[in-house]
Amino acid sequence: MRCLRLTHAGLVVERDGASLFVDPGDFSDRGEIAAAIAAVHAASAPPAGIVITHEHRDHWTPENVTAIREAALGIPILTTQATAETLAEAGIDGARVVLPGDRITAGPFELEFYGGRHELLHSSIPVIENVGVRIDDTLAWGGDSLVHPPFRADALGIPIGSPWSNLAQVLDFTLNAAPRRAYLTHDGILSERGLGLFTQRVRACLEQAGGELIRLPHVVKDPGARLEL
């Protein structure tokens, strides 16, 4: 399995001549999505599916999903009920609703879904659906949730700098999940110094449980770079 990042909260995974796009949100502009599509085609790994953890725009946009689907007609979109309805309203049909506990195949990828709810933003804002995904029993990504995964992840996304969490919650999540490896997400609104603070603290928590902080290369900075998991 080979991985690269999109800005803020998205990622792309490649395996066995196919790729999986996860949460291609609005921190990724058209140029970045085009670069990611070109990168997977250059690696002879065209898109085989799209996973969208929930309905917020920083995790998907109609333009980004349409661009990925135009590069690989008919690929499945796996998401929540509310997101599937919003996709349909945008003219994007055929999304498959997934629930925690579902196990689904998309191309060569074995997907296991978990979680179920978005973290609380504020008491005045309704809590929405959110599904995390584990890919090939290796890479786990919870979307906008700090729920303890029902497994010890080999590699887990740690959301930092999000408007629905604070540093203490992120560190507790890291300690409780105790992944073997972790990568940082949700850094799109952080300054360089803020990113450094989160990086330092998360790394220290990982080391307490014998874990390691890893970095997924960004598609715009180096389209040919991948992290092997």
Rank of each mutant, 00 (worst) to 15 (best):
T105C: 03
H59Y: 13
G91S: 12
L99V: 14
I52G: 00
W60E: 05
H118P: 04
V65E: 15
P47C: 09
A71G: 10
P159I: 13
G143A: 08
T53K: 07
L111S: 04
N130A: 05
W164R: 01
E110L: 06
T53M: 12
I75D: 01
E129Y: 07
I125H: 06
F109E: 00
E110H: 10
S124G: 09
A84F: 04
H56G: 06
T105L: 10
D137M: 11
W60F: 12
P126Y: 06
V127K: 04
P163R: 06
I92P: 08
W141P: 02
D144Q: 07
E55I: 10
P149H: 06
I158H: 04
T61Y: 09
L111Q: 09
P126M: 02
I104K: 02
R117A: 11
R103P: 05
G74Q: 05
P47W: 11
G132F: 00
N64W: 11
R152E: 13
R96P: 02
A155W: 14
A95K: 12
T86Y: 07
P47H: 12
I50L: 08
L78G: 10
L73H: 15
R117C: 06
I135Y: 05
A45L: 02
L78K: 12
R103V: 11
I160Q: 03
G132Y: 00
L139W: 06
H148N: 13
E119A: 11
A38Y: 01
A42F: 09
G143Y: 01
D58P: 11
Y114L: 11
L111H: 06
A106G: 02
H122P: 02
E63R: 15
W60H: 09
S162V: 05
T53C: 14
P62I: 15
G142Q: 07
F151C: 00
D136F: 04
A88E: 13
G101T: 05
E55W: 05
R152F: 08
R96Q: 13
V65N: 15
I52Y: 01
E63Y: 15
Q81R: 15
T138K: 08
V147L: 14
A45E: 01
A90M: 14
L139Y: 08
P149R: 03
S124A: 12
A90F: 09
H59P: 04
I104Y: 02
